[in-house]
Write a protein that binds this DNA or RNA. Structure first.
Lengths: 122, 122
DNA sequence: CGAACCCGTAACCGATGAGTTACGCTTTCG
DNA sequence: CGAAAGCGTAACTCATCGGTTACGGGTTCG
């Protein structure tokens, strides 16, 4: 049971600068798709597809409110990458013990995400 | 002064599963290119190019020894990504304080890397 | 010296990915 | 009810990327 599956999706997702900026934007608070799109020089459908990528790997969640779709960030999948990175700790227990806390967080939020998914597109 | 530049290269580098596996392989110890290549089902030149990508963003360093080129991993650039991830800490100071240690590490190793680069291809 | 070894690069190719415009659905509101 | 707003999707184009084979340069060794 490795995270390889999820890590693959998440690393691919954050490899794009636009998607990273979207996440940073959402860090300040939830936003409807329109508000997100107008912050970028690219077309709205382009942003919409970036949002889909982020959605499919659980980095954002959305709630349909009237005719607006509000997005909010979920850092849990990022923690899995942080977990992988932590495996490259210096000599022995350099960052290790500190980042181990992340792993705990991963397990904790894995439950939450399942619940979240049911709420999505609600 | 943001890491955006470096983070962009590093996230792109670790987005590929083969490159991540190379890093994991090198985590156990340095290896000549040949030894790395024979662990993968793809051709040797393909691995060689993956190594180049990893080299160009500082994730690996190489030393020319006779007719062999020995590679070793450098986790420092990964720390910059960890740093970025840490910015998505839960509510307030959930992982934050723990991952702050990473940032310190980033600064520390930035000097080292400059020295490393001079040694490369030596 | 010449053959074998180790490795990187060049040239080429199919797949993938990010961008665009056009379109359709649902919700709001005059 | 009909127009406008807010989103997502489809179809298409173009650049990038990862894979392959072919090749060349430096090193070891019989």
């Amino acid at each position: 049971m490795s995270y390889a599956f999820a890590v693959d999706d998440v690393t691919a997702a954050i490899a794009d600068p636009v998607r990273r900026q979207i996440l940073e934007l959402l860090r300040a608070g939830e936003l409807p798709a329109r508000r997100i799109a107008e912050r970028f020089p690219i077309s709205r459908p382009a942003v919409s597809r970036h949002l889909r990528v982020l959605r499919e790997c659980g980095l954002v969640h959305d709630t349909l409110t009237g005719r607006e779709r509000v997005y909010r960030v979920d850092p849990a999948p990022l923690a899995e990458v942080g977990d992988w990175i932590a495996g490259f700790a210096r000599p022995a227990g350099f960052w290790g013990p500190r980042l181990d806390a992340l792993e705990t967080e991963v397990h904790r939020t894995r439950r939450d995400r399942r619940a979240q998914r049911l709420e999505d597109t609600a």
